[in-house]
């Protein structure tokens, strides 16, 4: 199983806001144990999906060059359970962005119903981690493509978000 907790981007407004969908399936292994006979999507994995939505949005601001990690869940409030068959929409909005990181406000909706509200902090890894790699560029590019990032992504001027050239180059030159 890959650690992918969103299925596709619905909207991706660079530097501002992203919306992603997560379809919950009874086939997801963790739902067999959480809980036996009463499958409920763990709130922690919803947070992870929201963090992936917001984290990629923040990473795009540096053309995906900064190593963006979830550093703090400032707040997370859940109002209802999510269960198999639900399509959750995660909306992440960048509230503040600085060289060291970003603050993101997010919501989780099931249709019109508000399921959760979150406030997350992301950090740009630097200092001791400057030369470490979180993802191989081609792995990250694969993921961004799979999420439809470049189909829906729009730059502030409305033009389409292109695949970063440095990642395309790395894809060509990096062996498997």
């Amino acid at each position: 199983m890959r650690w992918f907790w969103i299925d596709r981007f619905l909207e991706f407004e660079c530097g501002r806001r992203a919306k992603a969908i997560k379809n919950i399936s009874l086939a997801e292994e963790h739902l067999q144990d959480h809980f036996p006979g009463y499958p409920v999507m763990p709130a922690s994995l919803i947070v992870e999906g929201v963090a992936q939505t917001g984290g990629l949005l923040v990473a795009q601001c540096s053309d995906f060059r900064e190593k963006v990690v979830l550093a703090k869940i400032s707040s997370a409030r859940f109002y209802a359970e999510a269960t198999p068959g639900d399509s959750l929409v995660y909306t992440a909005v960048i509230e503040a962005l600085q060289k060291d990181g970003a603050s993101v406000r997010a919501t989780v909706h099931r249709n019109e119903e508000l399921l959760a509200e979150l406030q997350l902090m992301f950090a740009h890894l630097n200092g001791d981690f400057a030369d470490k790699m979180l993802f191989k560029p081609k792995t990250l590019l694969f993921w961004l493509r799979a999420l439809g990032t470049f189909q829906v992504g729009r730059l502030p001027d409305g033009s389409p978000l292109q695949e970063p050239e440095w990642m395309r180059q790395a894809e060509i030159t990096t062996p498997d």
Binding site: A96, D100, S103, M121, A123
Partner: peptide
């Protein structure tokens, strides 16, 4: 350490000021 960035963002928003790094 991450809390200081959080505090900076909150002060900027609350007081409508810019806090340089």
């Amino acid at each position: 350490s991450i809390d200081f960035l959080d505090i900076v963002f909150r002060l900027e928003k609350t007081f409508d000021i810019k806090i340089p790094q």
